[in-house]
Computed example of a mutant assay.
Amino acid sequence: MKVAVFSAQPYDRRFLDEAWARRQAGASITLQYFTEALSLASYSLARECGAVCVFVNDVLDAEVLAALAGQGVRAVLLRCAGYNNVDLAAAARLGLFVARVPAYSPEAVAEFTLALVLTLNRHTHRAYARVREGNFALDGLLGSNLHGKTVGLVGLGRIGLAAARIFHGFGCRVLGHDPAPPAAFGALGVQAALPALLADADIVSLHCPLLPSTHHLIDAAALARMKPGAMLVNTSRGGLLDTCAVIDALKSRRLGALAIDVYEQESELFFRDHSAEIIADDVFQRLLTFPNVLVTGHQGFFTAEALREIAETTLDNLDRYIQGSPCANVCLPA
Score class of each variant (00 low, 15 high):
Ala280Thr: 14
Leu175Tyr: 07
Gln285Glu: 14
Ala224Gln: 15
Leu258Ala: 10
Arg173Val: 13
Thr235Arg: 02
Leu211Asp: 08
Thr235Pro: 05
His215Tyr: 14
Ala222Pro: 03
Glu266Gln: 12
Thr289Phe: 04
Ala184Asp: 14
Thr235His: 00
Ala193Arg: 15
Leu188Asp: 12
Ala259Thr: 06
Lys227Ala: 03
Phe302Cys: 05
Lys251Cys: 07
Met231Gly: 01
Ala162Asn: 09
Val204Arg: 09
Gly189Ala: 10
Asp202Cys: 11
Phe167His: 04
Pro228Cys: 11
Met226Ser: 00
Phe284Val: 11
Ile247Trp: 08
Arg272Leu: 11
Ala192Asp: 08
Asp281Met: 13
Thr296Gly: 02
Gly176His: 09
Lys251Phe: 00
Leu255Ala: 01
Asp261Asn: 11
His298Cys: 07
Met226Gly: 10
Ala192Ser: 15
Arg173Asn: 09
Gly176Trp: 08
Ser267Gln: 14
Arg237Gly: 05
Pro212Tyr: 06
Phe167Ser: 00
Gly176Pro: 10
Ala183Tyr: 11
Leu307Arg: 12
His215Asp: 05
His216Phe: 02
Gly297Gln: 03
Leu250Gln: 05
Gly160Lys: 06
Lys227His: 01
Gly160Arg: 13
Gly176Leu: 13
Leu258Ile: 06
Leu250Ser: 04
Gln265Trp: 14
Val190Arg: 15
Asp261Gln: 06
Leu307Glu: 13
Leu241Thr: 08
Pro291Leu: 05
Ile247Pro: 12
Asp202Gly: 04
Ala280Val: 03
Ile218Asp: 00
His215Lys: 14
Ala187Lys: 13
Asp200Lys: 14
Leu269Gln: 04
Phe290Asn: 03
His215Thr: 14
Leu258Pro: 01
Phe301Val: 01
Phe301Ser: 06
Leu175Thr: 12
Ile166Lys: 01
Thr296Gln: 04
Leu240Val: 01
Pro212Val: 07
Leu206Gly: 08
Ala280Met: 05
Glu266Asn: 05
Gly189Glu: 11
Asp219Gly: 15
Gly297Arg: 06
Gly229Gln: 05
Gly229Val: 06
Pro195Met: 12
Leu232Asn: 05
Tyr263Thr: 00
Leu232Gly: 07
Gly229Ile: 03
Phe271Ile: 09
His177Asn: 15
Lys227Arg: 15
Val174Gln: 01
Phe170Glu: 08
